[in-house]
Computed example of a mutant assay.
Amino acid sequence: MNQLDLQNRRAVITGGGRGMGFAIAKRLLQSGASVALWDVDQDTLKTAKEALSPLGPVHTQIVDVSDYAAVEAAAKKVSSIFGGIDLLINSAGIAGVNTPLVDYPLQTWNAVMNVNLNGIFHTCRAIVPYMQENDFGRIVNIASVAGKEGNPNASAYSVSKAGVIGLTKSLGKELALTGIRVNVICPAVIKTEMLENVTEEQIGYMLAKIPQGRMGTVDEISAMVGWVCSDECSYSTGAVFDLSGGRATY
Rank of each mutant, 00 (worst) to 15 (best):
L195G: 01
V184M: 05
D135R: 06
R181I: 05
G213M: 03
A162I: 08
Q132Y: 00
I139R: 07
A156Q: 05
K169Q: 15
K191N: 15
Q132S: 13
K148M: 15
E201W: 01
N134H: 06
T192M: 09
L167G: 06
A154G: 12
T192L: 09
L207D: 06
R181G: 07
I142L: 15
G213S: 02
I139F: 07
S170Y: 12
V182M: 08
Q212A: 14
N141Y: 08
K191G: 02
E133A: 15
G166P: 12
M215Y: 00
I127S: 06
G204C: 08
K209P: 04
T178H: 01
K148N: 13
S160D: 08
A188H: 07
Q202A: 15
Q212R: 14
R181F: 05
M215R: 01
N141Q: 05
I190S: 02
G213V: 01
N134C: 07
A176W: 00
V198P: 01
L167V: 12
Y157S: 07
T178P: 02
V145R: 03
V128I: 15
K169S: 03
E200S: 13
P152Q: 09
L167W: 15
A162L: 05
T199S: 15
E133G: 00
V184G: 03
N183D: 14
Q212P: 03
K169P: 04
A146K: 02
V145A: 11
S160Y: 11
I165T: 08
L167N: 13
I139W: 04
A156V: 04
V159R: 06
G163I: 08
T192K: 03
I203Y: 01
V218D: 01
A143L: 12
M131Y: 13
K191H: 13
I185V: 13
Q212E: 10
G179V: 06
Y157V: 03
E201L: 05
T192G: 07
V182T: 10
M131F: 07
Y205L: 10
A143P: 13
K209E: 14
E133L: 09
V159N: 08
G163Y: 11
Q202S: 14
E200Y: 00
E174I: 10
K169W: 08
S160L: 11
T199W: 02
R181M: 10
V164P: 09
V140K: 10
G163T: 08
V145N: 01
D219W: 00
M194Q: 04
M206L: 14
V189I: 13
L171E: 11
T199R: 00
G147W: 05
T217G: 04
T199D: 09
G147M: 09
N153P: 00
I190T: 06
E193H: 12
N141M: 05
G150T: 11
V184Y: 04
A154L: 13
D219A: 12
A208G: 14
I180D: 10
P211I: 01
L171S: 03
Y157G: 04
P129H: 07
E174T: 11
E193C: 00
I142E: 11
K173Q: 14
Q212V: 14
I139K: 09
N183L: 13
P152M: 09
E149I: 15
K161W: 12
K169L: 06
R138M: 09
V184W: 04
Y157L: 07
K148H: 14
N134L: 02
T178V: 03
E133C: 00
L167I: 12
V198F: 04
R138P: 09
L171H: 03
P211G: 01
A208K: 13
V140R: 09
Y205I: 01
